[in-house]
Design a protein around this nucleic acid. Structure first.
Lengths: 142, 142
DNA sequence: GACGGGTGCTTGAGCTTGTCAACCATTGCC
DNA sequence: GGCAATGGTTGACAAGCTCAAGCACCCGTC
């Protein structure tokens, strides 16, 4: 640690660089949502719902880390666009199962497709760097 | 490309892993903001302002990629807490220069400190991985 | 020097997210 | 049957965000 030189740990610099990527990604999410006529929270909600696995609203709320009352509004929006439907559950008449419609499933898969697109900064990396990055992230997050 | 095996490019898998990290970071930002008595947008605003470099509100708006009218509210909040002040500019009486107060500068630096903390997933990487990650990100985003 | 377009900021309307508290219907246990 | 707990909705409220309108001011031109 030289006197005037403020040494930053490599991980810290990496973290700051990721911060930049985060910022740009936020705007991307807003843009993509708008393309699909959704708001970002609606997009996350639809992405969370598996077309073949109806879940009660409560489950969506916990998955999104938010209040149930919030989900009511989100689902209202999705339902208004015919992307999901509320079906009554047989065994418990209190719960409403969320079912992704045919249309909703199509939108959802296109949406996931777009979200998966690797941002240009990463795509421009060499094949070796891409593999190394994947391996490191696997070790960190896997 | 084997038949049934859907091969994912390494960069794509890396991107998905980063998505996970993003999600966790979002909650972290909310938590940190609350700790400082700020809302997330207020936090970003304060972080953007350099204590030694007063800037017109317009500049903050473009830096935050939002409308000027939005900044008015954000700055109202920061000013109410004594973190920034609006000063008239000499050469142009329309513009209001944003000046970070002494207190604001302190809060800001503590805040940046906390935001810089490397999340545990990255911190737990080996020193080599950390360096490799930094180098790759430098190439991607530098 | 006065006019007029462009600019910086604020205000207000309107929408969405998000939380909390209150409420209703229903369930399941005692 | 009674009663606490649960799933979902509603309403009140705070905040972010955008747009349109307005105000004060700058600056070019005639």
């Amino acid at each position: 640690m030289a006197e005037a030189v403020k040494r930053r740990a490599p991980a810290q610099e990496a973290w700051e660089l990721l911060g930049k990527l985060f910022g740009e990604t936020r705007h991307r999410i807003v843009r993509v949502s708008a393309e699909f006529g959704l708001t970002p929270p609606q997009l996350f909600a639809l992405r969370t719902l598996e077309p073949d696995e109806p879940v009660p609203m409560r489950a969506l709320a916990t998955a999104l880390h938010c209040d149930s009352s919030n989900v009511t509004g989100l689902v209202d929006g999705l339902e208004a666009q015919g992307l999901v439907e509320r079906h009554g559950a047989e065994h418990d008449r209190r719960v409403r199962m969320l079912v992704v419609t045919e249309h909703g499933a199509q939108v959802r898969s296109r949406l996931i497709e777009v979200m998966r697109e690797v941002p240009p900064q990463l795509a421009s990396l060499s094949a070796e760097d891409q593999r190394a990055l994947r391996d490191i992230l696997r070790r960190a997050l896997g």
